[in-house]
């Protein structure tokens, strides 16, 4: 039980440390899914809808 308590305490400390680092958004910024990706996605979606219509006919 004491092992679990120690582990959970350490885990909480590490998480709190990282949350503070993450609150600085520029530090943890990952490249976003952008407008270009959205356009590609819409294009893929439309292509798939056309494909489905082709398949049923």
């Amino acid at each position: 039980m004491k092992q679990v308590d120690n582990f959970m305490k350490k885990l909480k400390e590490e998480i709190e440390k990282r949350i503070k680092m993450m609150q600085n958004s520029s530090y943890n910024y990952v490249q976003r899914f952008n407008k270009r990706d959205l356009i590609y996605t819409v294009f893929v979606g439309l292509f798939c809808i056309l494909g489905l219509i082709w398949g049923i006919n």
Binding site: T41, C48, I49, L52, G55
Partner: peptide, 14 residues
Amino acid sequence: LISNTIFGMTIAGI
């Protein structure tokens, strides 16, 4: 079968 599977699964995946 092919159209339903390829295009249907891709839309669900989006």
